[in-house]
Design a protein around this nucleic acid. Sequence first.
DNA 1: GCTCGTAACTACGAGAGTGTGATCCGGACC
DNA 2: GGTCCGGATCACACTCTCGTAGTTACGAGC
Lengths: 189, 189
Amino acid sequence: MSTPSDPSSDASVPASIVEQGVLGENQWEEIGYRGPQVCAIVGITYRQLDYWARTELLRPSLCDAQGSGSKRRYSYLDLVALKVIKNLLDAGVSLKTARKAIDYLREHLGEDLATASLVIDENKSVLARNGEDIFDLVRHGQGVLNIVPLGSVVRQIDAGITELHPSDLVASLEERDAAQIDPQAGLGS
Amino acid sequence: MSTPSDPSSDASVPASIVEQGVLGENQWEEIGYRGPQVCAIVGITYRQLDYWARTELLRPSLCDAQGSGSKRRYSYLDLVALKVIKNLLDAGVSLKTARKAIDYLREHLGEDLATASLVIDENKSVLARNGEDIFDLVRHGQGVLNIVPLGSVVRQIDAGITELHPSDLVASLEERDAAQIDPQAGLGS
DNA sequence: GCTCGTAACTACGAGAGTGTGATCCGGACC
DNA sequence: GGTCCGGATCACACTCTCGTAGTTACGAGC
């Protein structure tokens, strides 16, 4: 992290192809984000990312590590999940609880993320689609609730990507569109 | 905890006086709840209660320990605060975050607890008086929110006291009335 | 005044979640 | 094919939050 290299030169795919958005399906495994990049974007240490991958909290979905010298490859949705974990930690939520939340979130990452909030209960997690849903959960819930606004998470990730690797944003936007994420949408009143 | 003793006999104040509610001001230091009782009511281990007292998370407000053989005395409001901590832990919130929340809560324990919810942000804690307040916090908040419904906390404590020490409830109700707590009140729609 | 029960105190240790630094290894470049 | 660089791996240690077990001391009852 002391000497940030050119993102288009150390990627295995020519920058021109990335910028033109003409990637084939099988080439996705060649791009994505590597460990140190992920740390910078999400705002965590490499030690944390490594530990989380080893303990199965979140392994890179594009390409996992296979011995020294190999390279982990994280997808855009991995970044979102990692940022959710980071935000939960910042809010004082234990990694143990974050594990359960992420297990749930992974199964619903294809849904509309920006308008939803992740609501974590003692026992289970729920995706609340709007303010009404949250209001109901608060009124009927007996215990403590943890609420993660996913829209701001997506915005934080995009800001991190733009800041560090402007050229990579094109590929990320493709994946994000495929996941139906709209960072401009709010919670809706 | 293996041999629960008679609560009216091991208290320093005759049960009749407690039941009649004719205690003087200075006699409050003689009653309250001792360590093992607190553990049973709140649902924590003695080791936790001890650790929390030593690390200044929550010390007994009626009488602190002063060497082996002495006895800690916890007030009813101490029980409420301890149960808030317990609920936060069950929700996966770290003790470190709980510390900050309790620091804030202690300064507002005199307010109407049952209709309020404790809302914990990355940086600060707030007492939300009704559903509208929570709704606003969720809508305008950028990060993760932890919400503790205090009404249910009070109900949990009362249930614990009633189950273990029916005769002690009278004194507790006095203190609770003084603190303007109404366990029947909900959040209010 | 002696015993006894209870509860606070002390010591040791375990497990999670990291920080730090050394080491290893694969691929690019010469 | 040797070197270099980036990144994965490993070893060690540290803090926090307790669990377990043994010790100490206060107060009540005989």
